[in-house]
């Protein structure tokens, strides 16, 4: 398994390329490049392929939307090495309207964790006052125990998301990573 999925901390940088979509670099805390992905600009159905480096030689993970338009959008995550689905992430429709909320599902589509924006107050400030306020997401298991945190760094130009995993055994780290990349892709596009 890639080193990326064995680390408790890494960060994702989303870089905008206005014509050709966006690219993501994933770094270890010591800034070593762990993974690279480029989001296609003209794809109607979200399809994110993560590789070990920019040469795209070693595929790591695929994140693929189920539908083109789906209010509760669901994305399946497949380990590109063995071709096995490791889980999915689903955006919680109406409850995401004022405060972003996602659900992490296991390979059998059963919920294993929730990913929720830190507070209603901050979420409202981001939506109606300034989206420069960095986002923070708490990942909790079905018992409400915190298992990871996604924290956006303040940067008006480049979306940077710090991922910290507190409990690696609670949810497949590949599913946590896929969810973090998706949030970077989707939330980053909104800001």
């Amino acid at each position: 398994m890639s080193k990326l999925f064995e680390l408790d901390r890494y960060w994702i940088r989303r870089k905008f390329l206005t014509l050709f979509g966006a690219s993501f670099h994933v770094y270890a805390p010591d800034d070593q490049l762990l993974a690279f992905t480029r989001q296609k600009a003209f794809k109607l159905k979200e399809d994110i392929r993560v590789f070990e480096d920019e040469a795209k030689q070693v595929p790591l993970l695929t994140v693929q939307a189920r539908q083109i338009v789906d209010f509760s959008a669901a994305y399946d995550m497949v380990d590109a090495v063995d071709g096995v689905k490791v889980g999915a992430t689903r955006r919680k429709g109406w409850s995401s309207f004022l405060r972003d909320a996602w659900e992490v599902l296991d390979a059998d589509d059963l919920p294993v964790a929730s990913v929720v924006e830190d507070s209603h107050g901050m979420a409202l400030v981001r939506r109606f006052v300034s989206n420069l306020v960095p986002q923070r997401f708490e990942v909790k298991d079905t018992n409400g125990r915190s298992i990871a945190t996604f924290k956006q760094r303040f940067n008006p130009f480049i979306h940077k998301l710090d991922v910290t995993i507190h409990d690696r055994n609670a949810v497949d780290p590949r599913a946590i990573f896929g969810t973090a990349v998706l949030i970077s892709a989707i939330e980053g596009r909104q800001s």
């Binding site: 189920r66 539908q67 083109i68």
Partner: peptide, 29 residues
């Protein structure tokens, strides 16, 4: 499989590999 998986991927019960599910439900499509 359940309709929620339409257009998505699910692991094959026989070989375990991720398999595309028919996606004809997508209204926009």
């Amino acid at each position: 499989v359940a309709q929620d998986l339409a257009g998505g991927l699910t692991n094959c019960p026989r070989c375990g590999k991720a398999t595309q599910v028919d996606g004809l439900r997508d209204p926009l499509w």
